[in-house]
Amino acid sequence: MTTRTLYLFGSAAPPVFDLATVIEEAQQRGFDVCLGLTPTAARWLADDLDNLADLTGHPVRSRYKAPGEADVWPTADVIVFAPATFTSINAWALGLTHDFVIGVVAEGIGKRIPMAVMPCVNAAYARHRQFERSVAELREMGVRVLYGEGGFVPNQPGQGKPKEYPWRLALDEAERLTTPPA
């Protein structure tokens, strides 16, 4: 089996603390994983970044590289952005590329890189009109949004269940997006 490169991106939501387990599962599925984080997620995981880099075999990235600096990752076959917060979903849909991972996924649309995103928002954020607009916009641009029935279903504020975050669905979608049609 040819190794497929998965860019696994995460933002600052509690399921981000399970990334080591998710990376191992992705590797068992035949993915070479490159981990990218929003600046806040990188701050949350600061004590684990070296271990996560050792696990993936690639540097963990949360910042843009300098002009002329070599890219340290192989080219992506698929990108999965999970967990993706309210801020990340809206920034991506609006093209606000102030963070590295948002810039990569925004550009990924134009490069036609297969992408999936699984939000991690509470029901109060989900009721905000911009969130639904952003989900619809990403879907219209060809991003597979794992939200609602068959994806992430929001909890009430303060009642999150990070250990129940459906990581398996995100990895299943990465496999589906990189498997040629029969």
Rank of each mutant, 00 (worst) to 15 (best):
A124V: 07
G110K: 06
M118P: 14
Q28A: 13
L49V: 13
K111P: 01
G160D: 10
W92I: 13
D99Q: 15
V104M: 05
N155H: 10
Q130L: 08
A70M: 10
N155K: 09
R133A: 11
V153L: 02
V101D: 12
A116N: 05
P181N: 05
F86W: 04
D32Y: 00
A123N: 10
R127I: 01
R127F: 04
L94R: 09
P74E: 08
G151W: 02
V105L: 04
A170M: 10
H58Y: 03
P39W: 01
L52M: 08
A12N: 05
P157K: 04
P67L: 14
S134Q: 00
E132I: 06
T85P: 04
Y7G: 09
V121Q: 05
L146E: 09
R61M: 11
E132L: 07
M115H: 02
A84N: 06
M115C: 10
T97Q: 09
E175K: 12
Y64D: 12
N51H: 08
T40N: 03
R168Y: 01
F17H: 14
K111D: 00
I23R: 12
Q159P: 01
T5F: 00
A126H: 05
F152M: 03
S134C: 05
A46L: 09
E137P: 11
Q130S: 12
N51G: 11
N90W: 04
P14M: 03
M1Y: 03
P15F: 00
P39C: 13
G148S: 01
G57N: 07
I102V: 15
V153K: 06
G160E: 14
W73S: 08
V16D: 02
A182W: 11
P67N: 03
G57F: 01
A170G: 14
R168K: 15
R176Q: 10
A82R: 11
D77W: 00
Q130W: 08
G36W: 03
R112F: 01
I102E: 10
T21I: 02
A42C: 08
V16F: 03
R4V: 03
L49N: 12
I102N: 14
Q156Y: 00
A136N: 15
D77V: 05
P59I: 04
A82W: 01
I79V: 10
A41L: 05
A76S: 11
P157Y: 02
H58M: 01
C120M: 10
F17S: 12
A116G: 15
E149I: 07
Y147C: 04
V60E: 02
S134D: 06
T97W: 00
K65S: 14
Q156D: 11
G151N: 02
Y165R: 09
A13Y: 01
L45Q: 08
T38C: 09
W92H: 11
D50Q: 13
V60C: 11
Y7W: 12
D172I: 08
A41R: 06
E140F: 06
I89Q: 04
Y7Q: 10
A170R: 12
W167D: 12
I79W: 09
L94P: 00
M1C: 06
E107T: 12
R168D: 13
K161W: 03
V22G: 04
L55Q: 15
T40M: 11
L171A: 07
I109V: 14
M141K: 15
D47I: 10
R4A: 11
E25N: 10
V143F: 07
A124T: 05
